[in-house]
Design a protein around this nucleic acid. Sequence first.
DNA 1: AATGTGTGTTACTATTTTAGTAACAAAAGT
DNA 2: ACTTTTGTTACTAAAATAGTAACACACATT
Lengths: 262, 262
Amino acid sequence: MPSKQDQYFSKTLEKGLSILNLFGRENPSRSLTEIATLTGINKTSTYRLVNTLIQLGYLRKSLNDKSLRLGPKAFSMGHECFHGFDVFQGIKPIIDKTFFEHHISIDSALIDGYKLISLYRREMPNLVSFHLPLIMDELYARAMGKIVLANLDPAALDSYFATLAPVKMTPHTLVDIEDIKADITATKTRGYSINHMEYITGVISIGAPMMNLTTKSVVGSVSLDFPSKDYPLEAIEQQYIGVLLTLAGEASDLITNAGIRR
Amino acid sequence: MPSKQDQYFSKTLEKGLSILNLFGRENPSRSLTEIATLTGINKTSTYRLVNTLIQLGYLRKSLNDKSLRLGPKAFSMGHECFHGFDVFQGIKPIIDKTFFEHHISIDSALIDGYKLISLYRREMPNLVSFHLPLIMDELYARAMGKIVLANLDPAALDSYFATLAPVKMTPHTLVDIEDIKADITATKTRGYSINHMEYITGVISIGAPMMNLTTKSVVGSVSLDFPSKDYPLEAIEQQYIGVLLTLAGEASDLITNAGIRR
DNA sequence: AATGTGTGTTACTATTTTAGTAACAAAAGT
DNA sequence: ACTTTTGTTACTAAAATAGTAACACACATT
């Protein structure tokens, strides 16, 4: 008898994908028992699913036949899923236009859980060329993260703070939970977020949300990034808030038309 | 009773992944029936799997609730699978080293079926900046493709030719099947492949295989690319075959150590 | 407005697959 | 040599999927 919950939902597929999602740049290699405990799937089923992924080329065993790693098929599928994502193609011209018009560094990202996935970015040479991670955890310390937090519903925000352990990355990073909460509240009323060298010394950013205008929920954000030595915060706020909000509006239109939800 | 074939293989997961693989840059949008016919999965099961992928965020429905597209979760997983693939990280320094030592354009790719997936590339400014596709179908017209074909076992090569419909991309492109077969044979005895403006006018390339030295099977290839106006073919062959084969050897070592198979 | 066609969705069970326990083998660590 | 851990296999109850068929809905044609 099928589960009453949802007959038209495949738990097996969900489990298989959850296994694949355990692998990434931070975790290139995992063992079978590790996978079983992390996913909560029993060992036999884990073995079956992992074996399937191996046979299909999504995973492979290391030479010593122990640890598992991503296989070439995962690489090629990743390729396609990344470049085939139409929003990625759609946001390019929007960001490029603003980039060439105003000559400022721009970044954009989508939410996945409590992480931000870098969508597309353009960088000016005047910015300290920082190798930004493509997956960002530190929502509390980044303009793109703050504006997302400010637009989450209270329940989601609470569960974010429940497990948050802030790390001081620069002298300006806020690490006290109450300070961060106050900052988020201020961000909410302000309508855009400010990151004053809290993530990288010498970089000031302002962020605005990408909203799905139909569901009225935040699905990502955009930011403008400036070298602090050439751009004092006051000057940025005077000159670039309009640019930021226009850009965010265009991005939100794209998101809404594409029907992206969280 | 479980299937006698393999109790430790999940067909459901295989089907779910095959659905996800139908999407990509060439095919950003598909319908349910299209998916069902392409995969050969019956409509109900397709519906279940697609529904699962939607609920998990890997797919989404367009606004008119008809066609399906990749979702943000596919994008983020793609990201991770792409950048988390250790061979991608491993080949970078190898190619970079050769690039800075010899100042030539270099490309590398892995096989997936009868396609080449671009792995990592460095390009010199002197090369006509061609936006190469990241997934390459025209194996017969590219140096990286030819050397792969030359190293396939006869059966695989036959099935490649069985469905091949060559397209003339430049005046030099070989489109007669017999010509192509002869070229592959010549490539095999030569040990490296030559592409003399068959893919892009003005670009000459030489290619060598990335081999898994344990299984003695080809898993990808590397190529050196030159602008034909500065580099006649003879000069390239005199000067760069050694560089190419050294590079291919290093790449093969990497592949073998990583245990990449086809 | 009526009709037909295609597409997505749901209902219903036979059939197949998966979960879970347990046992075993092979490494790895002590 | 012994213990512990990790991967693999056997077995069957329990659960999920496949397949058929019917239905609803939109769109196009008449």
